[in-house]
Every structure is written in structure tokens, then in C-alpha cells.
Nucleic acid binder design. Structure first.
Lengths: 259, 259
DNA sequence: CTCGCGCCTTGATCAACGTCAACCGGCGCG
DNA sequence: CGCGCCGGTTGACGTTGATCAAGGCGCGAG
């Protein structure tokens, strides 16, 4: 599929590509192609060689890890973001699975070209270093969120993050199905349900996808949000999750329309 | 303290500095200084501005995260390795605490110089990108280890890793006190003890710091080691841990002499 | 030698969380 | 209209691992 110039423009505006010269960008995207995937498409499995840097232009993608028949969601990404940068740079096998959540448009940039420019263009190389640093810090935040907090606290912080993202009003709308949010927060749907129930004491009311927070201060006192953990910056990859079967967690990156 | 040239040589051999030109290395280390810390010294706390890249030349350093009076060890490093690279590059506050475990010699390289060279030298910038990619993958492996495996399985894999590192004989020596290994593996000392006990069924015998593995295949059948998780490369930073108070986990980097 | 202090171990109890099963309500479809 | 499916919820139960308390052992100091 040929690449629309509007799409290229969006890619160009990614922090990773902003600092580089036009010609470098041209060389990087010369061998690139755009592909549209249906929902639930497997893009990459653990251990696969990684030939392309993926740039998610539309839709959303879930990254997960598996071992011994258990699966754990490591991150969920929204547009516009890149993924598996580290594996591409190392030219190493993928350490996670990538699967589309909804139908997604993905730009695939040849890894070889990327590694070539990395070695020749300072601007690009330092942009990559910055990007990777951000990813790294995101992972660290995610680990702390996962390991230091209990399920109820994670949910409380998630709700507060959504709230601030949706204008800090008393009401917010959950961006995904609850089952998927449970996965994001590293718990089972059953426990998410119970966590919501126990937040009732803190002024949280739930009606389907609509949540109203009547006593934000009480909720914050429980959640104890911390800028070193909850920093919800744009384009922040995050992770975490839980054993067994589909779980996960992410500092959300976007609010997709609900179906 | 002035820097011995032997120390500088060791730093020079780090993957991060091998590819760069002598003059660049000279500029990086021009403002650097070597400092000796006693055991248990706090080098850095979460939220602190990060003015230096730390290079651990001797001793060992624990990285941890805290929230709400709970602490969780994120990684333990041995010589020679660098830490908080990501924060230095982003010129952002530290996301973890750093504390020496034993007396440690640490080289401190001014962050400003590092960021300057990052923007001017391709070789260095791409070396940084490679280094960060490795760190990132290490973290991902650590998360998978932590989230997908139970305590007994983590211990089993840890023992197998030690075994292969110590010559694959039937016997191995634990490199740390058990209490610290418990922390490394993300569990309490009590549970480590129980985990060892339950490994008796798989041919693991413990006598103080000495462990003999009489039926490696049985142990491997339990541990199910996975190259995507257990890849114990040299200079591999890893993480993970557990809530409450001092816990941790790491893909070991070295075998220090036991006291 | 003996006391005391760490480290390790062991047992009992508890809290968090996953699992299993059943049920409810909405919605599309025959 | 009624059926069945699916997402969500609720309850009972089991497992994992943390917590608390107690005791053994080795070792250095008095």
C-alpha cells in the first residue's frame, strides 16, 4: 500500500523524527510501507526476528509477554506511537508479542535502514536515545505501580489519571470495556468489579462506562498519586501486568472512541 | 580524588565507551571524579536531579523504588556497570533510589558533558542507544520473570543461572546472603526458605551458602528456563521486586566474593 | 566459656488475589 | 416474542505469599 503524505506528516511529527533532516527522514521512509490490520491480528510473536520498526498510526496495539502458557499484557499503545524500537536497534529477537486490538494502520520502517541512519546521523541517534530513555522510565514507573500498589490503589490512580485527562470534571467515561481495563491494571475482571465496589466508600459511582467522582480529595487520599509513578505524559509507554491469562497495565496514551 | 589510569582503562572498555574516539572519551571524563563510598551509602533518592552518570567500578549498588512507605528493590548492579543513564540523558529527576551495598568505588561523569557529546558524536550517541536498548530489554525480561512466574520458579531459574555461571557443576555457592537473594527474587526471607525446602523434591540440597543440584533435568523441568527471560548476558541490568520493604530481583551481573 | 546478636528457619495466621460457578441485564437474531 | 450470548457482577473457595512469633545455630565480645 502506498503511503499517503498526510500519514507521513504525522510520522514526521513524532519526537523520534522531528529533529532529523528531511533527507534522513526520506531515506528512513523510502523502504517503508503502510499496512492495515484487522482487529486481533498478530503482528509479532516473542522470539521472532524484528525486521521493521512499527509506527502505529491508527487503532491500538497490545504488547504482551508469555511463559509456560501464561500471558501477561505489558502495554497498550494508541496512535501515534512507535513500538519495539529496542529490538530493532539491537537487531535482536522480539521480547514481546504484538497484537492489534482494533483495526489498525501501521507504518513499517525497515530496521536495516534505521540502524544505518543510527550510525550516521547524530540527530537521529540522539533522538533515539531520548526516546529509549523515555520508554525505560515508563517501564520503571509501571513496575513501581504494579509492585508497590494494591489493586484498589491502582484503580484509584487510573481513575484520577483519566479524570485529569478528561477535563477534571466530576464525571468521566471509561475508554475501554471493563474487561480490558482490568487487564490494563493487572487484575481479573472479577477483582476490578470488587475494586470498583470498594471505591464506593470514596465517592466513586459507576454506571456502565460512566464514572462520577463525587469526592476527589478522598479518592486522592487513598490513591496517593506520585509524579514519579503516575506522570502521564503524552506518548508514554508503560507496562505491567499479571500472571495467568491476559492482564496488563499502562499509563494510558489516548482515549479512543468507544464502539 | 584523582582518577587512576587503570580505572579509566576499565571504564574505557565498557560497551558504552568502546566505540568512541579517544578525544571524546577524554572530554567526557575531563570533569569526572572518582569517589569511594562506604557500605549503605545513599547515592541518590527518587526525585533528585541527576547531575552525573554513575559508573560502578567496584562494589555493588542497589536500585530501589518507593511509594507510601513501601520499598521495592528494582535492581542490583555489580562492577563494571553504569546506572541512571536514562535519567541523565533526559536531564530528568531520578526515578529510583541508589544505595551502595558494600563499599564501592564509583566514577561520576558530569551529565552536562554527556548530553553535549550525545548531540555531537554519532558513535557515542549510537552506543548510548544500544546501551539503553539493552537496559530496556532487561527490564522487560525482569517484568516477565516477576509476573509470570511464582516464587519457587524464580528461585529454580536463579539457581540454574548461577549454576551455568559457576561452571555447570553439581554444586554452586550463593553469591550473597540469603536475605539479599530473597530481595533479589522478590520475596521475603521466610518464603525463600520455604522455596528452598520445596525444591528438595527436585534434587536441590542446601547447606548454608552451598547448593548442590543432584538432578538438573528435574529442576529444569520445573524451572522451564526461557532465553527470552533468562538470557544472562554480561552487563545486563534487570529488575523487579515486591511491595512492602526491601525486595528485589535481578539477572545477576557478577559473582562478588563472599565476605 | 558464655552471652548476645544476626541470620536462618519453622510454624501459625492473615490478606490479597485468582478461580469457579451462578446469575443478571441488554441486545441481536431467529 | 423469546432465545441465547456476552459483559458484568456476586459469592464461595483455594492458593500464594506476607506477617508475626518463636526457636536454633554460629560467631564474636566480654
Amino acid at each position: 500500500m502506498s503511503i499517503r503524505s498526510a500519514d507521513l506528516e504525522r510520522v514526521r511529527r513524532l519526537p523520534l523524527f522531528v529533529p532529523i533532516a528531511d533527507e534522513v527522514f526520506a531515506r528512513l521512509t523510502a523502504g517503508a510501507f503502510l499496512q492495515r490490520f484487522p482487529a486481533g491480528a498478530d503482528l509479532l510473536a516473542e522470539g521472532d526476528p524484528v525486521d521493521f520498526l512499527y509506527v502505529l498510526l491508527d487503532g491500538s496495539v497490545e504488547l504482551s509477554g508469555t511463559w509456560n502458557d501464561k500471558e501477561t499484557t505489558l502495554a497498550v499503545l494508541g496512535p501515534v506511537s512507535t513500538f519495539i524500537l529496542a529490538a530493532v536497534i539491537l537487531d535482536a529477537p522480539a521480547t514481546m508479542n504484538a497484537r492489534t486490538v482494533g483495526r489498525s494502520d501501521i507504518l513499517m520502517i525497515p530496521g536495516a535502514a534505521l540502524r544505518r541512519e543510527l550510525e550516521e546521523d547524530v540527530r537521529f541517534a540522539s533522538a533515539v536515545a531520548l526516546e529509549l530513555s523515555g520508554c525505560y522510565q515508563g517501564v520503571v514507573r509501571a513496575i513501581k505501580n504494579q509492585k508497590l500498589r494494591g489493586g484498589v490503589e491502582r484503580l484509584a490512580n487510573y481513575l484520577l489519571a483519566q479524570r485529569s485527562r478528561q477535563g477534571s470534571g466530576a464525571t468521566l467515561t471509561l475508554p475501554y470495556e471493563k474487561r480490558f481495563i482490568a487487564s490494563l491494571l493487572g487484575m481479573t475482571p472479577e477483582n476490578l468489579s470488587r475494586a470498583f465496589a470498594s471505591l464506593a466508600d470514596y465517592g466513586v459511582e459507576v454506571d456502565g462506562p460512566h464514572v462520577t467522582i463525587s469526592r476527589p480529595v478522598a479518592l486522592e487520599r487513598l490513591a496517593k498519586p506520585d509524579p514519579l509513578i503516575d506522570k502521564h505524559l503524552p506518548s508514554d509507554i508503560t507496562l505491567i501486568s499479571k500472571p495467568d491469562r491476559e492482564r496488563s497495565q499502562t499509563l494510558e496514551t489516548y482515549r479512543p472512541p468507544r464502539p
